[in-house]
C-alpha cells in the first residue's frame, strides 16, 4: 500500500507508519482524536428561495469512514456537501466541523477548516492563468507552506494522479478526466482529514471513473474520511467490493440509509 503525506507518496510500510502518525503531523491543525466525529450534522434544515431543500438531516462522519450520498438530481446532495465544509450555513440545526459549531466560526476559521477538508466538484474550477502544478499546490501556497511543494513532493503527488507530463499545462488544456484528477490532487495535497467529492466521475468515461475511484479508495485506506455524492450506482457497487462504505440517500428533503439493493 502506498500512502500520501503532504503530497509525498510513501512506500509500503512507510505509508502505514505515516497513516498512524498522520493526524499528529498536520501543521496548524488540531488532531482528530480516535473515535471523534470529524463532521456532524444534527437535525439540519436548509432553505433557499422560500423552499426547504433539506429537513431534519442528521449525519456523522467518523475518521476513516467511507460514505456515499445518493439521490436524484436536485435532491440536495451538493447543498449537503456545501454544508459539510462551511460553504453554506444551516437555517436550522447544527453543523459541527471537527467538533466546532460552524455558526461560531468566522470566515477565517472556515478557511482554516477548509484546509482540513479536501473538496472535489464535478464542475471543478482552477486558476486558469496558473500551470496545473501551481493549481495543485495552491492550498499550500495560501496557507503559507509553498516551500512544501518543492523538493519533489509535488512531483510524486502528480505522479500519483498520473499528471506528471501535464504539470506545465494550463487548466483549459486538460481533458475532463485530467481536470478531475488534478482536482483530487489539489484536494489532498494538504493531507486533509476528509475528502468530499461531489459527482467526481460525472464528466469522465468509465475507465477514468474507475481510476478516480481507486484513488479515493486509496485515500480512505490511508485513514481519510471520504464522502462521495453520486447517482452512479455502478460506482457505489464497485467501491463496496473494496471497502466498507455506507450509502445514504436523500429523499424528500431527508437523509436515510439506503437499502440492500445497493
Amino acid at each position: 500500500m502506498s500512502c500520501l503525506h503532504t503530497g509525498k507518496v510513501l512506500s509500503e510500510g512507510e505509508g502505514d507508519k505515516w497513516c498512524i502518525e498522520s493526524q499528529a503531523v498536520l501543521r496548524h491543525n488540531r488532531p482528530v482524536k480516535k473515535g471523534a466525529i470529524v463532521i456532524e450534522l444534527e437535525n439540519v434544515a436548509y432553505s433557499y428561495g422560500g423552499g426547504e431543500l433539506l429537513s431534519e438531516v442528521s449525519l456523522k462522519l467518523a475518521p476513516g469512514s467511507f460514505h456515499f450520498l445518493t439521490g436524484p438530481s436536485g435532491a440536495g446532495k451538493t447543498t449537503l456537501m456545501k454544508l459539510c465544509y462551511g460553504a453554506l450555513l444551516p437555517t436550522a440545526g447544527y453543523v459541527r466541523l471537527f467538533g466546532a459549531d460552524v455558526r461560531g466560526l468566522d470566515r477565517d476559521d472556515i478557511a482554516i477548516v477548509r484546509r482540513r477538508v479536501g473538496v472535489v466538484h464535478q464542475d471543478v474550477k482552477f486558476l486558469d492563468h496558473l500551470a496545473v502544478s501551481d493549481n495543485i499546490s495552491l492550498p499550500l501556497t495560501v496557507s503559507g507552506r509553498a516551500e512544501d511543494a518543492a523538493g519533489g513532493d509535488l512531483d510524486e503527488l502528480m505522479n500519483w494522479v498520473g499528471l506528471t507530463n501535464r504539470a506545465d499545462a494550463l487548466p483549459p488544456e486538460l481533458s475532463g478526466g485530467e481536470r478531475q484528477r488534478a482536482a483530487l490532487a489539489r484536494a489532498v495535497i494538504m493531507s486533509p482529514d476528509v475528502v468530499l467529492a461531489d459527482e467526481p466521475t460525472g464528466n469522465v468515461d468509465w475507465e477514468m471513473s474507475q481510476r478516480l475511484l481507486r484513488l479515493l479508495i486509496e485515500l480512505n485506506k490511508m485513514g481519510k474520511t471520504v464522502l462521495i455524492a453520486t447517482h452512479d450506482l455502478g460506482l457505489i457497487r464497485a467501491t463496496k467490493a473494496h471497502v466498507q462504505a455506507r450509502v445514504l440517500r436523500i429523499s424528500n428533503r431527508r437523509i436515510q440509509l439506503a437499502g440492500a439493493d445497493l
Binding site: 478557511a111 484546509r115 495552491l138 495560501v142
Partner: peptide
Amino acid sequence: AQVITVLRLVGATDDY
C-alpha cells in the same frame, strides 16, 4: 470572482 471562489475553496483567508 472565480479566482476568489477557488481561493476560498482551498482555504485562503479573506486577508490573504
